[in-house]
Computed example of a mutant assay.
Amino acid sequence: MALLEVENVAKAFGSLKAVDGVSFKVEAGEIFGIAGPNGSGKSTLFNTITGIPFGPDSGKVRFDGNEIQGLAGHAIARRGLARTFQRETCFDQLTVFENAEIGATYANEARSGAKARDAAAEALAFVGLAAPSWGRRAGELSVFERKILMLATAIASDPRMLLLDEPASSLTKPEIELSVELIRRIAARGITILLIEHVLTFLMSLSQHLLVLNQGRVLALGNPREVIAEPRVVEAYLGTRRVAA
């Protein structure tokens, strides 16, 4: 049984069909990539899966065999499904440690006090944010540090699956390389990953399967190198350029 099943999910804003009958499955333990041009519905799809800030208008989302569409975002998170966002979304006035502690507490009713603090400390150390930085305000961090703080906050919730929305955006090449290695280490912990990214080399280096969206619909799905070689994908997403095999 797949860990995540998305079946004919749709979301509209007035006459705009942002997500239009999307279906796919993600197996436990894999890194599954999602690509597509700007406005293709990628982040809206993440929103409908996680319930943050809204669920789908129609269709079904199953996590570990159970339907979760219609549940509140915190209820979905407490089932083991966490996410990050395109922008470096942190509580800027709180410290690095307090941000991670919120993740440990919000998504796990059984964690509070010392347990939450221990989970936060472990997650921060895992992503490479050293203890001397834990007392800094999140708003003082660099873009890269804020991105990995988002990851630490999500990891502190002890998720079974992590949805990453453009983790490489606005990063330098060395920072992208560090992010690739970090995502591989997260997967090695047994966390299943669903990944949106515009940087194709990033997706290609990580994904076992690749889904391409265009205008809210599935354009292609399958082996990443086969998918990006399809003429309709080249036209919709890559223009006239092709990625070398």
Rank of each mutant, 00 (worst) to 15 (best):
A116D: 09
R117F: 01
R117C: 04
D118V: 03
D118G: 09
D118L: 12
D118K: 14
A119E: 13
A120C: 02
A120R: 09
A120G: 03
A120Q: 03
A121C: 03
A121W: 03
A121S: 14
E122V: 04
E122S: 13
A123S: 14
A123T: 05
L124S: 06
L124A: 05
A125M: 02
A125T: 14
F126R: 12
V127R: 08
V127S: 07
G128D: 09
G128V: 07
L129E: 02
L129F: 03
A130S: 13
A130L: 04
A131P: 14
A131Y: 02
P132H: 08
P132D: 09
P132R: 10
P132K: 09
W134L: 01
W134K: 01
W134T: 00
G135F: 00
R136D: 10
R137V: 03
R137L: 15
R137W: 02
A138K: 00
G139S: 01
G139F: 08
E140C: 03
E140K: 02
E140I: 02
L141A: 06
L141Q: 00
S142F: 04
S142T: 15
F144S: 13
E145A: 14
E145W: 08
E145H: 11
E145C: 09
K147V: 05
K147C: 05
I148G: 00
I148C: 03
L149H: 03
L149P: 05
L149F: 08
M150N: 12
L151E: 06
L151Q: 05
L151S: 07
L151M: 15
L151R: 06
A152N: 08
T153R: 15
A154R: 09
I155M: 14
I155S: 06
A156E: 04
A156D: 10
A156N: 07
S157C: 03
S157W: 04
S157Q: 03
D158R: 14
D158H: 13
P159E: 12
P159M: 12
R160D: 12
R160G: 11
M161N: 01
M161H: 04
L162G: 01
L163Y: 13
L164P: 08
L164H: 11
L164I: 09
L164S: 07
E166Y: 13
E166H: 12
P167C: 11
P167V: 11
A168V: 06
A168C: 10
A168G: 03
S169G: 14
T172V: 04
T172C: 10
T172E: 07
T172F: 02
K173F: 11
K173D: 14
E175W: 11
I176T: 14
I176D: 00
I176F: 04
E177I: 10
E177K: 13
L178N: 12
L178H: 08
L178W: 00
L178S: 14
L178Q: 15
V180F: 09
V180W: 07
L182F: 01
L182G: 05
R184S: 04
R184G: 14
R184W: 12
R185M: 07
R185W: 09
R185N: 13
R185H: 05
I186R: 06
I186W: 07
A187D: 02
A187N: 15
A188R: 15
A188W: 08
R189E: 06
G190P: 02
G190M: 08
G190S: 05
G190F: 09
I191H: 10
I191F: 11
I191G: 04
I191N: 06
T192D: 04
